[in-house]
């Protein structure tokens, strides 16, 4: 059935309106208010309503703001790339090499982490990655190490992956499992090598799902405060850490709002480009 052309009656509005009202109240409202707040002034620890550009010019003129900005983009990008690559063989195995039953259980297992507190898992990593921690204890049996992992980018990336890896594997697996097996079979019968089947059949057909997984991964890493702070030791600080720091300088919420808006615009753009590419119907050879 093709979507029906717009006809406004009680039935259609019942389904269309709730979300509009709800999002206006509790999503558009807060976001717009935050934009307004970025023009407010702070005097003696108290925010006063105003319309000044000083917060914007101040933040944009700070080198540390731009350092944080690019660092956050790079580390979140690295995390996305690594997570996608690390997830792929696992998802591939789950999609093509195991029975439906095992796949169902595997996906179920991958949902389990969502039921444990991310903070608690991070706290565990702390003890596992420490110089006197579990991994280095293992290495010392082999007369290796100790390796410094906490308070470095490795720590941050491990933290990001704790958050994103299960989700990315689920999305990749579901996407690949939905590919029509006949196409792969056909390519195989036509003499395609496994490598080129992956390159020419599987990846193009899973483009949408893969891009969406990557976008999600990037968004989650970009906005996460816990991993870079607790496992990365704020070396260097990412934008979410900068937001918290900014609020520690005598109620500078307006400047924190500036950082927040820049983050939002960045993520909107990336999500938009991602979704556009994901659903574009390009037929590459």
């Amino acid at each position: 059935m093709k979507p029906t052309k717009n006809n406004l009656n009680i039935y259609s509005l019942t389904f269309r309106l709730p979300i509009i009202i709800w999002q206006l109240l509790f999503f558009v409202g807060p976001v717009l208010f935050m934009v307004a707040m970025s023009f407010f002034l702070v005097k003696n620890y108290r925010m006063t309503e105003a319309f000044e550009f000083i917060n914007w010019t101040k933040m944009f003129s700070k080198n540390y703001f731009w350092d944080s900005y690019w660092f956050t983009i790079i580390i979140a990008g690295t995390s996305t790339l690594l997570t996608m690559l690390i997830a792929f063989p696992a998802s591939f195995t789950l999609a093509f090499k195991v029975s439906d039953n095992i796949r169902r259980w595997a996906i179920f297992m991958l949902i389990i982490p969502f039921f444990t507190s991310y903070l608690v898992r991070t706290f565990s990593w702390y003890v596992i990655l420490a110089e006197k921690g579990v991994i280095n204890a293992f290495f010392s049996y082999l007369d290796l190490g100790p390796f410094k992992m906490l308070n470095t980018h490795i720590g941050t990336l491990v933290g990001y992956m704790t958050l994103t890896l299960p989700l990315v594997i689920i999305l990749q697996t579901v996407t690949m499992a939905n590919i029509d097996r006949n196409l792969i079979e056909a390519a195989y019968n036509l003499g395609c090598k496994p490598k080129s089947i992956i390159q020419r059949v599987i990846i193009p057909l899973s483009k949408t799902g893969f891009i969406i997984a990557a976008v999600f991964c990037f968004i989650l890493s970009f906005g996460d405060f816990v991993a870079p702070f607790y496992l990365g030791g704020s070396q260097e600080p990412t934008l979410p850490i900068l937001i918290l720091d900014t609020t520690k300088s005598g109620q500078q919420w307006p400047r924190a709002a500036v950082v927040a808006i820049v983050m939002m615009i960045t993520l909107f753009s990336i999500a938009f480009i991602g979704i556009m590419t994901a659903y574009s119907k390009s037929f590459k050879k």
Partner: peptide, 11 residues
């Protein structure tokens, strides 16, 4: 979901 939680929280 594209807005980092910490920003959404603040707003």
């Amino acid at each position: 979901p594209t807005i980092p939680l910490i920003i959404l929280a603040l707003a």
